[in-house]
Design a protein around this nucleic acid. Structure first.
Lengths: 244, 244
DNA sequence: CGGTTGTTTGAACTGATTCAATCTGTGTGG
DNA sequence: CCACACAGATTGAATCAGTTCAAACAACCG
């Protein structure tokens, strides 16, 4: 699917409920409209990916850039022992930038997602024309580094309950849920929470039941209802400033 | 301490045995000599830091850049429960770049280290003059991201033995130990290994004793003697390509 | 309806922690 | 050179958080 040039792109119209326009998202993250439009003019492919089915296997050449228009993507790494670790998440408006030695992680969707795929080489031409773009990319990388650090602390020294509580808080914040909002959709299966927090799904199930028994959250269908954000944050040692 | 301009800088002469010249290290990492020299011409301070004494507390404004000339630096994050997690290491020739929201980690040395400190604002002037520098910085960030991922897998799904074995392999590689070399100095205390791998020092002690009992390594004074690199790598699931 | 995917529960097990004590090496000052 | 202090390493015993295995249950979907 190629870009439709001139006039209002069909991509500007909302496709899903939380679908993100590429230009809007880039501008909102601090990029100048000129550069955002230059990026949007690059050849691009829109794809829709189903959850839990890897669409980019580990070890493949990293010549593509992915931009999440709606849903959530995950970088994952399978290990010989059969378990897998989810390394990072990308929410709507965020992107996956390729790295130099072909990355060892694969990509899969957490929920059905719409993704824009572009060529690294194409983007590099925009970087050449607009050096500020490099700073923008670096800033995004540093934000993800801060999140990475937080996840390492999570898996390294926090207990199972704190890990899950932290993930819930981070997910709500990164999904753009207002702090006043008590209810938000839980995008994860318990297995996925386990893959993120380095546990088994059995234990995640018990932790969630515990959190519910303690009255911190309620689970209703696919939603999480948070009765006491402050307490959930305390349990998860979540301080959101690392997210900007 | 200010830069001595013109002629051979005193910094070009080796100060410690493994001391690294700033220009050499930058050029070797792929930067052009012109840019490396431009960076070297910036105001800089040389400091020597003692191990295990934080010299940069968490949460302080990140307006400084650190370049490791010798030794090893660690980013660490203390947690309310009294434990701490080491988030990343920087070996000789590597640097710590500041991030936008003031970083939540502190810096400490693993062993006595020599560090060059520069101002972020100064470096940015070089970036303005040489846009390729931005790509260089991004590439370094991506390499550290790959290492971060590896550490997350370590803490998330590998068992205590694999974690320690992996750290030993990574340390040897990043220290520049030739694969043929069986002996290398262990820079860590057992507490530091624990802080990196998310364990207690007691358990690290038992794991090291196990590795020795299994004949994989020997410990002699401050050195680790690796009897069988291939086997140690297998145990630690260490595949070094993520290090470039 | 049957098949699939995800959740929940129980019982047994185990890897790692916690607490406490001892041992070893190194440096320091008398 | 010895006495002492201090940091790190080592060991044991008790405990516990989280895993493993197995089985049942619920929800969803074509």
């Amino acid at each position: 699917m190629r870009k439709n040039l001139g006039g209002t792109s069909w991509r500007s119209r909302s496709v899903g409920q939380d679908s993100v326009d590429l230009v809007d998202a880039l501008v909102q993250s601090g990029l100048s409209p000129a550069i955002a439009n230059a990026i949007d003019d690059l050849p691009q492919r829109n794809i829709e990916v189903d959850p839990r089915r890897p669409f980019r296997e580990p070890g493949l050449a990293g010549d593509e850039i992915f931009f999440v228009r709606s849903g959530i993507l995950a970088k994952f790494k399978p290990e010989p022992n059969g378990r897998r670790q989810i390394l990072a998440l990308r929410f709507a408006g965020e992107g996956v930038w390729p790295s130099e030695p072909p990355p060892r992680y694969g990509l899969q969707a957490i929920v059905k997602s719409q993704v824009v795929v572009m060529q690294k080489a194409d983007l590099e031409t925009v970087v050449d024309d607009h050096p500020e773009l490099a700073a923008f990319i670096l800033k995004a990388a540093q934000r993800h580094e801060a999140i990475n650090h937080e996840w390492l602390v999570n898996c390294g020294i926090r207990n199972a309950t704190a890990r899950v509580a932290h993930l819930l808080c981070e997910t709500a914040t990164r999904s753009g849920i207002a702090p006043s909002e008590k209810r938000f959709p839980n995008p994860f299966t318990q297995q996925q929470i386990a893959d993120i927090t380095g546990q088994t799904s059995i234990n995640v199930n018990r932790v969630l039941a515990d959190l519910e028994r303690q009255g911190l959250i309620r689970r209703e269908a696919r939603d999480i209802v948070v009765n006491d954000w402050a307490e959930l944050r305390r349990v998860g040692e979540f301080r959101p400033n690392y997210l900007l």
